[in-house]
Design a protein around this nucleic acid. Sequence first.
DNA 1: AATGAATGAGCCTTCATTCAT
DNA 2: CATGAATGAAGGCTCATTCAT
Lengths: 206, 206, 206, 206
Amino acid sequence: MDRERQEKQEAIFQAALRVIKEKGFHKTRMADIAKEAGISYGLIYHYFPGKGKLFEAIQERWWGGLFGLMKRIERENLGVPERLRAVIDYFLGTYYENPELANIFITEISRSTSNLSPERLRHFKDFMEMIQKVMKEGQSLGFLRDDFPSRYLTYMFLGGLETFISAMVLVDQKFKDLAQKEKVSRGILEIFLGGAMKREFPVEGP
Amino acid sequence: MDRERQEKQEAIFQAALRVIKEKGFHKTRMADIAKEAGISYGLIYHYFPGKGKLFEAIQERWWGGLFGLMKRIERENLGVPERLRAVIDYFLGTYYENPELANIFITEISRSTSNLSPERLRHFKDFMEMIQKVMKEGQSLGFLRDDFPSRYLTYMFLGGLETFISAMVLVDQKFKDLAQKEKVSRGILEIFLGGAMKREFPVEGP
Amino acid sequence: MDRERQEKQEAIFQAALRVIKEKGFHKTRMADIAKEAGISYGLIYHYFPGKGKLFEAIQERWWGGLFGLMKRIERENLGVPERLRAVIDYFLGTYYENPELANIFITEISRSTSNLSPERLRHFKDFMEMIQKVMKEGQSLGFLRDDFPSRYLTYMFLGGLETFISAMVLVDQKFKDLAQKEKVSRGILEIFLGGAMKREFPVEGP
Amino acid sequence: MDRERQEKQEAIFQAALRVIKEKGFHKTRMADIAKEAGISYGLIYHYFPGKGKLFEAIQERWWGGLFGLMKRIERENLGVPERLRAVIDYFLGTYYENPELANIFITEISRSTSNLSPERLRHFKDFMEMIQKVMKEGQSLGFLRDDFPSRYLTYMFLGGLETFISAMVLVDQKFKDLAQKEKVSRGILEIFLGGAMKREFPVEGP
DNA sequence: AATGAATGAGCCTTCATTCAT
DNA sequence: CATGAATGAAGGCTCATTCAT
């Protein structure tokens, strides 16, 4: 049945996430994944064409979710801070619900250029451009400072966001609860928008 | 002569940087490095005990420089913004002078936990703590906002900084000249301190 | 099936014996063993963890059999000459049934100290001590001469025995039949016990 | 000067003996020998054509000495026991004066067929034949028992002798003094000739 | 003569992938 | 569908030997 096939495939997928998170992609052997999934290693090839394709599927899962979000954001016509907040929430939410996937994004996808096929690199740039578009809009609306290129704002925003996750990844820290996640989410946005410097009259959050 | 040996070792080191930058550590074969350095395969082993040690030497080069800087900063009793600026300049300066090393830091050292020996992980945490100390000092001096943990400020700062480099790495972008480097450096600090939001009366830089 | 696995492993084991006998352990390449066994060389690693472990297994096979014999001897409460005869028979019997194993014992295990792990050296000394115990018993029973240390008798006995095998190994000589083996066995014992010198009245065999 | 060259060559030779004794021939690297000799490793090649030839020289040294002895024995028209005693003394004497050489004979030359070139094998057989000739003479003179082939006596004699040395090699035991060496020498001969069995009237040594 | 940098063939081992059952 | 035995390309490392200085 097709349904069963899907479930098995997903089980292998999740097993792969767990192992790759632990050992990194290059050090992960197909046999490890099979063992983690509790199946024989030959069976993986009934569900995925090969190791490379399996890894691509993982990346696709991440990007698929993220681009889905970006499209939703564009459709829903939100304000700039709300959009940024939505992006932050996507990252933190994924880390909350599927920490392995977020972990792998940070450690294997986000930076490493060696795993990056040209197509995959495209994803990155596309995503950056989407964020940059938001920044530009914020600048033209007079909400964001325009004394620096929108690229700068983009880097700062995504960098801060990623590093929050990275730090949690590095120490394998989990969110205690949703409230903590909310607090972090708000913190990232506020520091990004308001900056680190103290002011006489605290800047009102957006 | 010892001098010649040093130079040869450095030549191999730099060749390794170039190859690793291009292919990533795991996909880099010793033969590639030898070819890039224009020497025979076995000769690498006269200068480095093995692939792992060579990679460790690369990481050490990065951390050595960075910790050297951090010590200097602590000694020289600079103000908070000046310290942060020095850190930014170190990252950008390394990228300017030795782009491969900075690249490798971003793609292979900075995130990947799989390459991380416990000792190496130590470096990370130590560095984060050094930055966090600066943030704490800024908070206690009343210069930095204290409505968020100093950790948050640390993540935002380092994240933004790293991502500036990352983005340049991704597109293999070089600084046109020192002036451009200066501009970026100032931008990072200012956005971090002042935030992305526009204000009626632009915040004075520190 | 487990049975098949055992058989395959044994086939590789025997192939290894044949090759090592021919080329010596150090000059034996895994590829040689694979070729001799008629399999691809990667397959060896499904059955043995590595070259070293394969060699250890070979040594273990020898010592396992020998110590098994020694235990049986001690249990069965045989007389001194019968015990010595049993040891001789074990050596000759192994050479008869598995000439490669006996050969390797002689050429690679028996003497070479460089292949000898401390554990392996233990085996040697243990075995020597077992024989020496027999000699001591013979001396205290008044059956063996006691004007020399029991060690001397031990060396002479084991030396003669080993060299019989060695000589056969060197010229790749096989026993024609069991009768010949019996004759040799008796000869070794008799010369050891009675000595090489002729006497007026031939010494009665034990 | 030729004299100096000879001395240097001998120094390398002795260094090789020491290292090979410790690590075995196969695990001995040319660099080890050079280090032990206190010279650069390239220099060895000024004195020996290569590793193999160096090892052959070592074997030649042993066999040269031994065959020299055998010739002398034949010339001097000694009795059978005296000849056997001379052979024993040669082995023990070499072990006494140049333990490394005797050690290497036992561990690397005596048994290992893998190090044995056909020419080297020849030496063995020649030597065995020389001893066997002695045994045959003893038999035809009525001094040695003739109810077994002379080969058997040969194996027993050489086996016992070798194993005495082997045992000393294994535990790295040295002779305390010449007297001890004499005692061992006599013991070997007496046990070989008189056998291990006790008799009413102890057999007179020859 | 002496040095040690340089070379590269050789070999062990790993592991993605295939395939017979 | 499921298994795991089998394959063999790939790559790290060693070390005997050569050779420029």
